[in-house]
Design a binder for these strands. Sequence first.
DNA 1: TGGCGTATCTTCTTCC
DNA 2: GGAAGAAGATACGCCA
Lengths: 100, 100, 100, 100
Amino acid sequence: MADVGGVAADHLRSYIERIERLEEEKKGIADDIKEIFAEAKGTGFDVKAMRAVIRLRKMDKADVQEQEYMIDLYKHALGMAAEENPAEEDAGNEAEAAAF
Amino acid sequence: MADVGGVAADHLRSYIERIERLEEEKKGIADDIKEIFAEAKGTGFDVKAMRAVIRLRKMDKADVQEQEYMIDLYKHALGMAAEENPAEEDAGNEAEAAAF
Amino acid sequence: MADVGGVAADHLRSYIERIERLEEEKKGIADDIKEIFAEAKGTGFDVKAMRAVIRLRKMDKADVQEQEYMIDLYKHALGMAAEENPAEEDAGNEAEAAAF
Amino acid sequence: MADVGGVAADHLRSYIERIERLEEEKKGIADDIKEIFAEAKGTGFDVKAMRAVIRLRKMDKADVQEQEYMIDLYKHALGMAAEENPAEEDAGNEAEAAAF
DNA sequence: TGGCGTATCTTCTTCC
DNA sequence: GGAAGAAGATACGCCA
């Protein structure tokens, strides 16, 4: 049990520093994304619309995954299983969703 | 110029793919952070308290930055400006915050 | 010119205190609003939809159409088209928003 | 219960009108604040610096609250809990922030 | 002075 | 339900 004050404090510090480092990385990436939006905007694109499109694509992808999961469930239920585990495959189906 | 439908569609696609890739990376990092919290919890630490510590440290850091920004503002106001932009120095001064 | 250090400091203090007081008031009102939403939610209303309604009442309808047009344009540019033709739809989107 | 279309529509209308009224009040206060800034600016003060001061003061206040919250967390963790909820006391303690 | 980029503030959403 | 993050709206300063 983490009796703070002993070596546990070191572990705590370590955890916290790792987390803080990762959060900085995350922030860096978020900034990169912002930059790309800014660049796109500078090229004449409508950022808001771009965001909307990205959101839609994400939703489509989620839908597709849900669908694949169901199909897989059914395949397994019917003994048609070929792969390992439902919901863990990502075979190369090119569902018209992410169509480009 | 972004006349969607012509060659611009390629640029759009490129921007969007870059953004989506970065967002995946970001999500990966967020997952890493969650893992660390889970691991810490498993070692007996209180996640809620850890979050509080991290929050506090972040606030302290922001506080310091804000103070440095203030100092810079004052320096500029007094005509001592040397650099281009306030908030870009990091002299180790500890000026009292709400100084009036 | 407000030569801080003389009586000007008093003026500054006064301004800042007035502002801080007003910001507290503002926050109080914001909290009241939140309370009302909470109450409405407790009575069975969908807060999200309520917000949408309020937003729509405030928003200019032309803006909405323009935005939808852009999104559609981009979808088409990316081959995500499912519907008929950009700029030609606006028929069937009776977003649940304007629900009353 | 909120079966929109029946009597509930009246309740909905009432909620929304109350909210819209409060938002007008809120906007009024925001305008007052802007006026004060404008007035201060006219007297020779630097609005940007004023904003910085206000921000810093707010951060300091938040810092203190967060520290009190931490202390409370610790007290609870040590079984010294007396009240219901951390962050609801206001003892004037000055504990050092990132204390580990 | 009027567009444009940036900064700040607010609102919405997500996660825990 | 409350905190953290993302998105959006707004305000401000700059430079031509």
